[in-house]
Structure formats: structure tokens, C-alpha cells
Amino acid sequence: MENKIHNLKLVGEKVNNLIIKPNEVFSFWKLIGKPNDKNGFKKGRNLIDGKVSDDFGGGICQFSSILYHLALQTGFKIIERHAHSLDIYEEHERFTPLGAYATVVFGYKDLQFQNIYDFPIQFKSEISEDEIKLSAFSEDKIHINEVKFDYHIVENGVEVQTLVDDELLFKNYYKRL
């Protein structure tokens, strides 16, 4: 857990005060860089090919997922996002709703979105031992979308539909252990 918090704080520092200009595309990996010991990351829990393992940068999917959820709420255009293939959490353990997960794997899976507004938007990030706060700010009004995740139990898993202002945006399947 200590390594995960360390990794989350590294990511949070890079995102804090970040400004995304009009039409600019944000790339998680372009900003964060390779999660290795040289870049200050520690080993933590990762999900790779449906299996739990330890690797550098473990736990940072928690941040990318919260960032993705904020991007949905603020109306950014989602360019690239990957869902986890496995749901390892019980409902009371979730850090974002199932369906808001955005897994990132360096060189393979990125989180990218574009600022569709004609004004810049700035992110603010605070990481503590038990909380991640992520906010978007602008001098102009940002429309906040209503984001819903509809769950449907299917064989060996859960299908989740992501609805933004009642429009179907994504459909994902999560295998249950």
C-alpha cells in the first residue's frame, strides 16, 4: 500500500496545475513517462492479462481511472481508453464506479482525451494517504455531464454501459473472479 501511495503521489504531482489548451490532446504516458525505478516509481500491484502481479508503477491505474471519470464529466473527447478485463473489487472497495476504470500500460495502453472547449482547462490534484482529489478549473464555464454506469450481470461477469447525458458512449465487460 505504501508503494502504491508513493506512485500515486508521483503521478499527482505531474498532473497538478497541468493546463490543457483548446484542442490539445492529453496523453497519460506522454506526461508521466515510463514507470520504472529510474523515474522514481516503486513496485506495486498490477493487473496483467487478468492476473494480479507486482511491477513498477503499480496502483497508478487508480489515478488514470479517476482522471478518465473527470474527463467524462467535463466533456473532453475520449480518444483512447482501455477498461480492465477483470473486476477484483467488492462494491464497498471501489475508488470509481465500475465502468470508469481506465487501465494504462506503458507503450501499450494509454489514456488520451482532447479539450474540445475554446478555452484552457487546468487540473488540480491532491493525494493523501487515504484520498485522491482531482478537479478541473477554468475561467470560463465548463459544462458538467451526467455520467451513469448501468450494470448488467452476465455469465461470469458484469457488462457495464457508460452513458453520458443518457447517450451510450461505451460498453465494457468485466470478468469476475
Rank of each mutant, 00 (worst) to 15 (best):
I88K: 06
F63W: 07
S64C: 11
N3I: 07
I78Y: 02
K171Q: 06
G58K: 06
H82R: 10
F106H: 15
D166G: 07
E167Y: 03
K9G: 04
E91L: 13
D49P: 00
Q114E: 13
V164A: 02
N156V: 06
E2F: 12
I32K: 04
H152F: 11
K175V: 05
D55C: 04
W29E: 01
V158S: 03
Y151P: 01
L111F: 00
S27Q: 09
R81P: 07
E93P: 10
S128T: 15
N145Y: 00
D55I: 02
P97K: 15
G44D: 02
F56D: 05
Y173K: 08
L98Q: 09
F106D: 11
S128F: 03
V160R: 00
N7F: 02
L168Y: 02
A136K: 09
F119Y: 14
N39D: 12
D118I: 10
S125F: 05
L98I: 13
N16L: 02
L47A: 00
S27F: 06
G59A: 10
L67W: 05
D166L: 08
R94M: 11
V104L: 01
Q122P: 04
D140S: 13
T103S: 15
S53F: 07
I121Y: 10
V52G: 05
E139T: 15
N23C: 09
H152G: 10
S125W: 02
Y101N: 13
E155H: 09
L72V: 10
K175E: 14
L134D: 03
I142Q: 06
K34L: 11
R45T: 03
V105E: 12
L31E: 14
L70G: 14
E126N: 13
Q73Y: 03
L163T: 00
F63C: 08
I142S: 02
V15L: 15
I5A: 12
D130M: 10
D165K: 01
K141L: 09
